[in-house]
Structures are given as structure tokens and as C-alpha cells.
């Protein structure tokens, strides 16, 4: 098991947003996290990278167990060096070129020499089809291009797992395809991915497993095919029905 998460709890003031989430991810797994708006998907993902402090919970990653509430700086820094996070709105560094966006984490955090970092960055940018825009600034790129650069920024450090939080939700419809294509490619290459998404096609065709959340609980989790073809829970069926009706 590459990543195992147990019993994650999180509340914002009086709102209980996560009520004990469990999840296991095997190496090479693509897990889609589905659920209605406000069900806690983003919060859950952010807790795994300590962008948000869980109130309780435990995570075993790469053979090491961390307390999601009390983990120290060192452990968090180590974890972040082995993971990558792709945000809904890209969050590229606006004052840095495409190339610098990708190398910064390598030179700064990992002390990789500039020339080596550049090589790794160019390789990562080639994988997402952005190697021809090394010197552009984020402000000069389309949303789809920015998101692909953001994925390359994550890829460059050779992470063991990539967390995606609705990577296509901020994109114009015609730009969604290019980002999904990159993600599909990564999945085929065996990258371990945890993907919060509203893209049912992607979840259905690319992910191996699905976790469906509602109101801070996991309602149903399992193999993708079984989940879509034969959902066990009434709530899951209702969710899938509204999704299918709305498209």
C-alpha cells in the first residue's frame, strides 16, 4: 500500500466538514473522488498535504506514519517533497516564466543545480506539451496551458503521488480536453493519482477506483466499473442520476 489514510476529521468553527474519512491507494492507482459541492473533497485533499490541518487522522505514506493533526515541520517538508498538488486555478507563480515555475521547487527546495533542474523541467514540460513556451509568463498562456505547466511543475520532482483538485473546473469547455489528455497519459504511464473531479467521463474511463463523498462521509468506495454499473448505495444512485441528467 503506497498511501493509507485513516479516520480524518476536520471542522471549521461549528461546521463538521470531514467525519472520519478512510482511503487506501496502491502504487499506480488512479482514484477519483466524487461528490456534490461542499461535501469536503477539497478539504480532504488539502489535509493530506497539510495545506489544512486536520483535527484528527493518520496517514501512512511511503512506509512512514504521520499524525495529520500533529505532524512536525520536518515530516511535512519530507512529505511535500514526495508529492505534488495540482490546484483548480493553477496557482502558477506569476512573476516567473514557465521554465522558472518548474525549476524553482527543484533548485530551492531540493538544491538541484540549475542545469540539472533545467533538464528535468524541460523533460516534464515536454510530457505536457509545453516545452515550446519555456520563456512565456503565466499571464500570456491560456488556462489549459497554465494547468499543463502546473502539472509539469508537479511532475518535475518525480513525485510518488499527485493530488489533483478539480484540475479542469476553472477551464473553458474547449480547453478541458488538453488537460484531461495529459492526465490520461500520466495514468497510462503508471503515475499514482488522487483526483477530485466532476468529469464523469474521466472518472469512468481513466480511474481504477472511485470514492464518493457526501456531507463529510464516504458514502461508497470501490472499483470504478462496479461503482458506475452497479452502485450499492441509494445516495450514490441519486448522485449519478443527477449528474447524468445534467449533461
Amino acid at each position: 500500500m503506497m498511501l493509507q489514510v485513516r479516520n480524518v476529521h476536520k471542522r471549521f468553527e461549528d461546521r463538521e466538514v470531514l467525519r472520519g474519512i478512510d482511503l487506501s491507494v496502491e502504487k499506480g492507482d488512479v482514484v477519483a473522488i466524487l461528490g456534490p459541492s461542499g461535501s469536503g473533497k477539497t478539504t480532504f485533499l488539502r489535509c493530506l498535504n497539510f495545506l489544512e490541518r486536520a483535527d484528527a487522522g493518520e496517514m501512512t505514506f511511503d512506509g512512514k506514519t504521520l499524525d495529520l493533526h500533529a505532524a512536525g515541520k520536518r515530516d511535512i517538508a519530507d512529505l511535500r517533497k514526495k508529492t505534488a498538488f495540482v490546484f483548480q486555478n493553477y496557482n502558477l507563480f506569476l512573476n516567473k516564466t514557465v521554465l522558472q515555475n518548474v525549476t524553482l521547487g527543484l533548485t530551492c527546495a531540493r538544491h538541484i543545480p540549475q542545469d540539472k533542474a533545467r533538464e528535468a523541467a524541460v523533460r516534464a514540460l515536454e510530457r505536457v506539451g509545453m516545452a515550446d513556451r519555456l520563456n512565456s509568463y503565466p499571464g500570456q498562456l491560456s488556462g489549459g496551458q497554465q494547468q499543463r505547466v502546473a502539472i509539469a511543475r508537479g511532475l518535475a520532482s518525480d513525485p510518488e503521488i499527485i493530488f489533483f483538485d478539480e484540475p479542469t473546473s476553472a477551464l473553458d469547455p474547449e480547453l478541458i480536453g488538453e488537460v484531461l489528455a495529459v492526465m490520461r497519459q500520466l495514468a497510462q504511464e503508471g503515475m499514482t493519482m488522487l483526483v477530485v473531479t466532476h468529469e464523469m467521463e474521466f472518472a469512468r474511463n481513466v480511474s481504477h477506483r472511485v470514492m464518493f463523498m457526501e456531507g463529510g462521509n464516504v458514502i461508497e468506495a470501490g472499483e470504478t466499473k462496479a461503482f458506475f454499473d452497479n452502485p450499492k448505495e441509494e445516495r450514490t444512485r441519486a448522485f449519478l442520476k443527477t449528474i447524468l441528467e445534467n449533461r
Partner: peptide
């Protein structure tokens, strides 16, 4: 979000300040 992205690529608070926030 840029600060969070900085953390996610492994940068420290001071590195994020120096390379990203302060220049902007």
C-alpha cells in the same frame, strides 16, 4: 494560492517570500 503552491513544491516560507511574494 501561489504561496500554497510554493509549499507544495517544497519551498520554505522564506524562499516563497523571497522568490515569489516580495518581487510581485
Amino acid at each position: 494560492g501561489q504561496i500554497e503552491a510554493g509549499y507544495c513544491v517544497g519551498m520554505s516560507y522564506l524562499q516563497i517570500m523571497w522568490h515569489i511574494v516580495l518581487p510581485q
